[in-house]
């Protein structure tokens, strides 16, 4: 009886504690999301004012003259992201396949997995320096290729780890069904396992692309920047982040406005990419147990 009474007596205190903790956690969640919302609102506000049709069709205007746009930087970012995906996506998916299907629990695989995790947290400027050393220096000039290469290296860990995680979600009994049908292992992996999780893997790819699209530091070193249209993949190329950086630190009012517009477009691009993939891949393609 004693215990029962004591428990009843504790009840009020327990409930109060519960409420305080809940309030605290809610507050923490608000603090976490506040920067996102305020950055978004601020960028949209400032960027929208500077937005015009010219922004998407014109080259940057010379100092002193008004108007102009970032058409070259927008296409440049697209070219860089495409180049990066061309290298990063196949390497990332194949790496993920190796880690989940072939290496599995081997020493090599766990070493590789560790390496990929480290790569994911290497500061992007270091990746830029690396690309500078292996691509820019031999070619003797910054280029779209060097930029794409640097962004690809940044994409690989995201794509590889997401692919691995998603492939591992495919239950063993699905693989066994394939093997028991007399389907060779590689075909089971490609046509059944990979196909089943492709939708989700595309989400991983999109996240990788979104990350690559916003990188600035490695592009400063590798793709440099340009106020003109691209003259080829072996030439320097403009990109949104670098253009934003150049214009934002300039002392000219017009340029700073353009930088805000650029930031707006970049945020919109990443936002649309995220939301878009989520909408396209709304059906869960992974088998449920």
């Amino acid at each position: 009886m004693n215990i029962r009474n004591q428990l009843a007596a504790n009840d009020g205190r327990r409930r109060l504690k519960n409420q305080i903790m809940c309030a605290f956690l809610f507050l923490a969640a608000i603090v976490a999301i506040a920067p996102l919302v305020s950055v978004f609102v601020y960028v949209v506000q400032r960027g929208y004012q500077a937005m015009s049709w010219d922004f998407f069709t014109q080259l940057p205007a010379a100092v002193g003259s008004s108007g102009g746009g970032m058409a070259n930087a927008i296409t440049g970012t697209m070219v860089l992201v495409a180049l990066a995906s061309l290298i990063g996506v196949p390497v990332g998916i194949c790496g993920g396949l190796y880690l989940s299907e072939f290496g599995a629990n081997s020493k090599i695989a766990s070493t590789l997995r560790f390496g990929v995790d480290i790569l994911a947290s290497v500061p992007s400027i270091i990746v830029g320096l690396f690309a500078y050393a292996v691509v820019v220096m031999p070619m003797k000039r910054p280029s779209a290729l060097a930029g794409g290469f640097a962004l690809a290296i940044l994409m690989i860990p995201t794509v590889a780890r997401t692919s691995e995680a998603l492939l591992k979600l495919v239950p063993v009994h699905i693989r066994e069904a394939g093997l028991a049908l007399g389907i060779p292992r590689w075909k089971v992996i490609i046509f059944i396992v990979l196909r089943g999780s492709m939708g989700a893997i595309i989400t991983g790819i999109m996240l990788g692309i979104a990350r690559a699209a916003g990188e600035t530091a490695p592009l400063l070193l590798t793709a440099a920047g340009s106020q003109h249209w691209s003259h080829g993949l072996d030439q320097p190329i403009a990109s949104l982040p670098v253009q934003i950086y150049t214009f934002a630190i300039s002392p000219y009012d017009e340029w700073q406005k353009q930088a805000w517009a650029g930031a707006f477009v970049l945020v919109l691009f990443v936002f649309v990419l995220n939301i878009g993939t989520r909408l396209i891949i709304k059906r869960p393609t992974i088998a449920k147990d």
Binding site: P171, H173, G178, L179, A180, L181, G182, I192, T285
Partner: peptide, 21 residues
Amino acid sequence: PVSIRRRIGMVFQKANPFPSL
């Protein structure tokens, strides 16, 4: 083993149709 499994089929305890097909 692939050629053996083509000649000896198997049905499992839990129905396991390929989810994406």
